[in-house]
Design a binder for these strands. Structure first.
Length: 370
DNA sequence: AACGTGCGCAACCGCCCCGCG
DNA sequence: GCGCGGGGCGGTTGCGCACGT
């Protein structure tokens, strides 16, 4: 642990790299590749430690690096990814071609955190700052609850003051259980644009229902070729979402919608998702894939089917590795039968618009999702 | 012009993980 | 199983620049 042995060696330069050093390192790696980093400085004739060389190469000399300021799309994407991945800068950077983890980390610490706070968002958990107080309130309520609810089913509910949401009524159950019953007074959506239910299961991520941005709330009827797809829960359900309170995180799994979209105004958000789509196509999938669900391009087929396993069984890694969008949420009906919905959006690199899989109608009937 | 302040960025530090002997 | 070294990552620092007073 601690310092690497190379750092103890004498006469090793530290600090800023000179153009001559850059030139030496660049020339060496271009010709020989880096191989074992610890041997690079010696071979390249540099008075640096291997780690320093590696860092310099990765963060500055690499030929595929993108220079210049971050675009709005990139910033939005970083925010969304951070909501999912937390401070896993290398994983975030992996989704932004030409950007380094260091660059993204710097941007986050110097700029994005500030922006989020200005928008009233806690950058550490992507929740509205005022919700922290509410959350504490709910935790107290939870402590009095007799019910024990699997964390994998937890979801926080934030009902904004926005009058647009009077189609939903919610109340705490009278029996002190930690449920909030949501009774849609008209059709109740899980919408790929607005994410009525959102969030992710990542350990540090906090999910909630971002009701703040419902300008585009879509109450149109679902159509197979609707673009983008909209998931809608049957209005006949008086749905209970489990549970209303959580001491830590919400883990209802909703892969296709990171919980940060409300940060951006609609235009920005659409731009961001389009970027995701493009990147997803370029990278052949991975984490961008679920972002594709929000996009209006780049994925071709989509299908909805139920998930047999518990929501908690769905590993976050699946979101990261799968080439598909996966949107999973749990919704417990009055019959106490959880309904898990998993949406997969298959995309292709040709940028064509998505279409729903042909059998989705049958599936939606079977599971009474729509 | 001089000074103070804030900010962005490059680089370092410290730790963890993993492979190897 | 253990120690060591390399690679990698996230957190932090400090330099240099821009800007305001």
């Amino acid at each position: 642990m601690g310092r690497h042995s190379c750092c103890y060696k004498q006469k090793l330069r530290k600090g800023l790299w000179s153009p001559e050093e850059d030139e030496k390192l660049l020339r060496y790696i271009t010709k020989h590749g880096h191989g074992c980093w610890s041997s690079v400085p010696k071979q390249a004739g540099l008075q640096r430690c291997g780690k320093s060389c590696r860092l310099r190469w990765i963060n500055y000399l690499r030929p595929d690096l993108k220079r210049g300021t971050f675009s709005q799309q990139e910033e939005n994407l970083i925010i969304e990814l951070h909501a999912v991945l937390g401070n896993r800068w290398s994983q975030i950077a992996a989704q932004l071609p030409g950007r380094t983890d260091n660059e993204i980390k710097n941007l986050w610490n110097s700029c994005l955190k500030k922006k989020l706070r200005q928008k009233g968002i806690d950058p550490s958990n992507h929740k509205p700052l005022f919700q922290v107080d509410n959350q504490q309130h709910k935790i107290s309520a939870a402590n009095t609850s007799k019910n024990s609810v699997n964390a994998s089913n937890e979801v926080n509910i934030h009902k904004g003051n926005d009058s647009k949401f009077d189609f939903l009524s919610s109340k705490m159950n009278n029996d002190n259980s930690n449920f909030i019953t949501i009774t849609p007074t008209k059709e109740f959506f899980v919408d790929s644009h607005e994410s009525l239910i959102t969030s992710c299961s990542h350990s540090d991520s906090v999910g909630y229902l971002p009701f703040q941005n419902y300008d585009q709330f879509n109450d149109s009827t679902f159509s197979p070729d609707q673009n983008p797809p909209t998931l809608r829960f049957n209005s006949e359900y008086n749905s209970t979402i489990l549970p209303a309170v959580s001491s830590t995180i919400s883990t209802t799994q909703m892969g296709f919608k990171p919980c940060t979209n409300f940060l951006s105004d609609t235009v920005q958000y659409r731009e961001a998702t389009n970027t995701s789509a493009n990147c997803g196509s370029n990278s052949g999938g991975s984490i961008f894939s679920w972002g594709l669900a929000d996009c209006e391009s780049s994925y071709k087929e989509a299908q909805i089917h139920s998930v047999e396993s518990d929501a908690g069984d769905i590993k976050w890694a699946e979101y990261l590795d799968t080439p598909f969008l996966m949107a999973t949420t749990s919704l417990q009906t009055h019959t106490s039968q959880p309904t898990y919905v998993k949406a997969e959006a298959h995309y292709t690199s040709d940028g064509s618009n998505p279409t729903w899989d042909q059998n989705h109608k049958q599936q939606k009937q079977q599971h009474q999702i729509f």
